[in-house]
Design a protein around this nucleic acid. Sequence first.
DNA 1: AACTGAGCCAACCGCCGAGAC
DNA 2: AGTCTCGGCGGTTGGCTCAGT
Length: 371
Amino acid sequence: MGRPPCCDKSNVKRGLWTPEEDAKILAYVSNNGIGNWTLVPQKAGLNRCGKSCRLRWTNYLRPDLKHDGFAPQEEDLIINLHKAIGSRWSFIAKQLPGRTDNDVKNYWNTKLRKKLTKLGIDPVTHKPFSQILSDCRDISGLQNSQNQIGSLNKNIKYYASVPTPEHSSVLTVFPNTDMIRNKSVMEQVQDSSSNANIHSWHCLSQFQVLDPEIIQPNFFNEATSSCSSTSSSNVTQLGSPQSYSCQPSHAQITPSSSFNWSEFLSEPLPYPGFQQQQDRHLKGVLSPTNCPSTLEQTPQLNLATGNYNGLYRIGHEGDFGTFDFGSTSGDQTNNRSEASSSVSSFVDAILEQDSEMRAEFPDILDGSFDY
DNA sequence: AACTGAGCCAACCGCCGAGAC
DNA sequence: AGTCTCGGCGGTTGGCTCAGT
């Protein structure tokens, strides 16, 4: 038993839509609104599958859609969200009014991915290539590193072959996207510490601060409620096999023009025990041994408390949770201290890693390293 | 002018969870 | 309870455009 099929798949038109077909859909929707898409082809007089009609409407005909190019602010937001949650295009598109998941996905695949690669940043991990190579070396040693970096090498070769002023150093371009925004947070964290190691610094190097004027506040609500998501983000491929169940989001805030970020960031945690639960997660997540591969977050500096709130993802299934750490817990304070670096700044740290990598992988950037 | 390859993007494919039957 | 479709999603592809040769 079950529902009857919506259409005869073998007997419907496929391919590009004609203006006449578009007009039929528009006329139908304006008269009847959006309802059961399986009935639309029949009622609108179209020889198309209902699913195809729905896609045409949602991706192209909807009156609220923008059809112009992406603004720099939109680019930044896409990059930051992709860094935080991976290729969850529908979610990213919801943060960009007038854009569809297909728009965002296409723009990422055709423009932004290449742009990041050209700038020396791996579009999957959003780390500088030099750092990834260094991580590979740390994990498995030089002997095995060539097998692990896979497609990375192609990106590096592309990056290295582009004669742009930017790539004279990996870092000269990095500030354009993340470093400017990261700077204040990074400096504050680093300034607050005295002893740390470079491994812990990797944790912080993944932190980012999203532009509060661009990203909508329900981002965190939606992200943290996506606990059952089955999407497989590339970003989590290196994640720890540990699996936790995350908690519901704590701040039920609806987008509003009068939204106050300070209030949002100072929002109390949702229920007794939440903080302790998150503490327990973070205690593991922030340990120097697993930190670089498990954190998946978009920390925000809480302006009121000086703590950091954000998003993390645990396990291969991409479960999300929120965290809040700072000066209220001894363990957290220690972790924060450990997470700071012995190097003087983020830029210095990257440069240090970069020159280290260049010294140990002399063949990679001179073109002789090939597949 | 003809050919070729890269870039772009609309549309399709296939999977999944929810829900209808 | 089991089977099937719907709607939503991310990944992939087909075909159009355009620049370079």
